[in-house]
Simulated scan of single mutants.
Amino acid sequence: MSIRHGLLALLDQGPRYGYQLRSEFEARTGATWPLNVGQVYTTLGRLERDGLVESAGEDDEGHLFYAVTEAGRSELRQWFDTPVPRTNPPRDELAIKLAMAVGVPGVDVQAVVQAQRRHSMKALQDYTRLKGQALTAGEQQSDLAWLLVLEQLIFQTEAEIRWLDHCESRLSQHAARSAPASAPASAPASAPTAAPTDRPRRRSRI
């Protein structure tokens, strides 16, 4: 997540101070990625150092305002125009957990997958409920931004559930291939040959 560019995008709409930036950032994203004020002011300090924002005075309450510079607007437009690269995908804790679990003795990987699926299904239900609330909340800019974030979370969770289904199928196939082959059934023992009983009988003498 680029806090740097998120703050530039908010400042592009007019000067703001730290608490305003934090509140508006969380309103746009539905507090999905909460910020603390320390992060905001640390990022503002770096942006000011790089010439992307500048001080814009104080109000009567002593709030220090920041404004975006032309260099900041240029970087912001470049960020919007450049696709997010997939060459270095973010680390996914769930993928790492399953990758490690398959090599650890005594771990029931199927149980890990099933527990995660239940959790993901619950999250999907919660996101869907929140989407319904967002659709009826209104047409403000912050509502639209939150709706877009929610839908991304919904699509991402749906994809995760499909991937977990695939993992379970893959684990079952691997277990079937790794199972020892059953011993061939032994052939039934042949019945013992009966002693011949058809010897020619002696004719009795009269």
Rank of each mutant, 00 (worst) to 15 (best):
D60R: 11
D60H: 08
E61R: 07
G62C: 08
G62Q: 11
L64K: 02
L64C: 03
F65L: 04
F65I: 02
F65A: 02
Y66N: 00
V68E: 10
V68F: 09
A71V: 04
S74Y: 05
E75N: 12
L76K: 03
L76D: 09
R77S: 10
R77D: 11
Q78L: 10
W79N: 15
W79A: 14
F80N: 14
F80H: 13
D81A: 09
T87M: 13
T87S: 15
N88G: 09
R91S: 07
I96W: 01
I96R: 07
I96N: 08
K97N: 14
L98E: 01
M100W: 06
A101I: 01
G103Y: 08
G103N: 14
V104T: 06
P105T: 00
G106E: 07
G106K: 05
V107S: 10
V107H: 07
V107G: 10
D108L: 07
D108Y: 03
V109M: 10
A111F: 02
V112C: 09
V112M: 10
V113N: 00
Q114V: 07
Q116W: 02
R117D: 11
R118N: 13
H119A: 14
M121L: 07
K122A: 13
L124V: 05
Q125R: 07
D126S: 06
R129S: 05
G132I: 04
Q133H: 08
T136A: 11
A137N: 15
G138P: 06
E139Y: 02
E139Q: 12
Q140I: 02
S142H: 15
S142A: 15
S142T: 15
L144C: 12
A145Q: 14
A145G: 13
A145M: 11
L147F: 05
V149Q: 09
V149N: 10
I161D: 05
R162P: 15
L164K: 03
L164V: 01
D165E: 03
D165N: 03
D165T: 00
H166M: 06
S169R: 08
S172P: 00
H174M: 03
A176R: 07
R177K: 06
S182A: 10
A183K: 05
A185D: 15
A187H: 12
T193H: 10
A195L: 13
A195H: 11
A195D: 14
R199G: 11
R199V: 06
